[in-house]
Design a protein around this nucleic acid. Structure first.
Lengths: 193, 193
DNA sequence: CAAAGTCCTTGATTTGAGATAAGAAGCTAT
DNA sequence: ATAGCTTCTTATCTCAAATCAAGGACTTTG
């Protein structure tokens, strides 16, 4: 019998006691999505929290100029959510899209509230995961406007190189807030060293 | 008898039932800080979560170039925290500083965990507050590199004008990721309209 | 009331990333 | 295989904001 990545995550990262794992798992349902499909889009309500068993998602925001700005990419064992919409049933301003054919485990609002209410370790683990995202965003914000495009790319290679293998460069350029042309020039320059 | 802003916040925003409010309140202790004092600094462990009864704080990050980048300002009724450090007792990379003489209510790790474990409405309220910050950061990140300095300042006036009255312009410039010179020119230009 | 220190403004100059345009390379499907 | 995509690269030009450099306005302190 195959071991579920979700189960492993709950046990090892969230430290959910064995007795709670089984009933937690039952609150989720599997979902397969095709490349480029959206899990939710701006204007819709985000009705689930998503756990990635296999594949790659990106969350993005469409700014006032109509441009897509990628907030983050998440891969295997990552969580994606938009609780501002999810908790209050109000339309989200964000978008969540699959960049590859992906296998997800998803949990709906009712079950999520139940899980948070009943399983302390899940609650604390969830808050912790939120905080990690939060901190990542703070750092990215602090660096976004200070680093040169070259510094951004070098940091990206250093910290998130796995993404480089599976994501088109134009998405990476948008993520790093530069044009594909600029990214291309930087890559050429660095390759020459 | 004076009504505590913290109590009002817990009741009205967090929807904590009356019976739980009293014991929640007891988990906090008051703290007064002077202008420019730090609540925590990079390298220390963030040992409390902070609620602002009166005053103004800023959280900032010192980037690789040694420059201070302000993540956010918070005022009356705002919460400040750095849970990545707080939950795991590891050194933070962020800084929290008072910009005015301020009155805070603070809660330590033990009591916070207790509150999260025992009072569901506090837990959900806390997650929600985290998410609001999270969303604000996502939006700011998405706009940060696209908006012109003038657009950033105009948005700031529109969305956060109260801050304009009480925070030095050079802090606002750093918050909006521009030099004080640029901000000064923009203000002149706008004033002339 | 000087003197020193902040904070803000103004001007001159430089520069690096965006915009624009065009072409090359790599895939996919029939 | 070739037509038609999508993605990536290269070159030129332009301009807006950073940098550099001073000076002015306030505030605090001895």
């Amino acid at each position: 019998m195959e071991v579920s990545p979700l189960l492993t995550q709950l046990k090892q990262v969230y430290k959910v006691p064995d007795r709670d794992c089984a009933r937690l798992i039952q609150l989720f349902e599997p979902l397969e999505v095709k490349k480029n499909e959206h899990l939710f889009q701006s204007g819709q309500v985000a009705r689930h929290v998503y756990f990635i068993e296999k594949g790659c998602l990106r969350q993005y925001y469409i700014n006032n100029n109509g441009e897509e700005r990628t907030i983050y990419f998440k891969m295997e064992d990552g969580w994606c959510s938009e609780l501002v919409s999810f908790l209050d049933n109000k339309p989200t301003e964000l978008n969540l899209q699959a960049l590859e054919d992906s296998k997800l485990q998803i949990i709906n609002q009712k079950n999520w509230i139940y899980a948070i209410s009943q399983v302390k370790s899940f609650t604390l683990g969830f808050i912790r995961a939120q905080q990690d995202t939060n901190f990542m965003l703070k750092k990215r914000l602090a660096e976004a406007t200070v680093e040169t495009p070259e510094e951004k790319y070098l940091r990206f290679i250093k910290e998130e190189s796995p993404l480089l293998q599976r994501i088109p460069l134009y998405h990476i350029a948008a993520y790093l807030s530069m044009t594909p042309e600029t990214l291309s020039r930087i890559r050429k320059k660095i390759a020459g060293k």
